[in-house]
Amino acid sequence: MAKRTIELIVNGDRYELAVDPWRTLANVLREDLRLTGTKVGCAQGDCGACTVLLDGRSISSCLTLAVEAHQREVTTIEGLAPSPDELHPIQEAFVQHGAVQCGYCTPGMVLAAKHLLDNNPAPSEAEIRAGLSGNLCRCTGYNKIVDAIGAAAKKISDTGKEA
């Protein structure tokens, strides 16, 4: 059961890593690449704190083996902002709408929202709520998160550009 050499493309950067095949993507992102924005809240795929995008789809990185991401594109929360001094419209909306409290669920929430808006650029409130089915939050009661995602959708469509 030797280590496997894999190539991960994370936030556009290419990494070659030797990993044990039983390690999860969440673990490799956090421990090897030190991208600790990906949080682990339950390690069972129930809470969504570890959500990342794999080839553009939101997935639970705690239930994904790192070797399965070999040669695939991974987007973590660290890779969403277009530049160091700019936020992605979803991130900006989370800040402005008070959608962040303790912040532990936030990276997963933001990426779940990204997946949602990529597939449905003008979601209804009910669709936003359904789009967050895999993300638990204990601080905000979700309503400000829902507002923020709605506002981000509008901003993205108004400016006509997606970061």
Binding site: T36, G37, V100, G103, Y104, T106, P107
Partner: peptide, 23 residues
């Protein structure tokens, strides 16, 4: 006033450090 949290930008970008993030 409704002032957005000053710690929010670091939390939406994944930069905020929680204990288990430290090594």
């Amino acid at each position: 006033q409704s002032i957005p949290r000053l710690d929010a930008p670091s939390k939406v970008t994944g930069k905020a450090i929680y204990t288990d993030d430290m090594k």
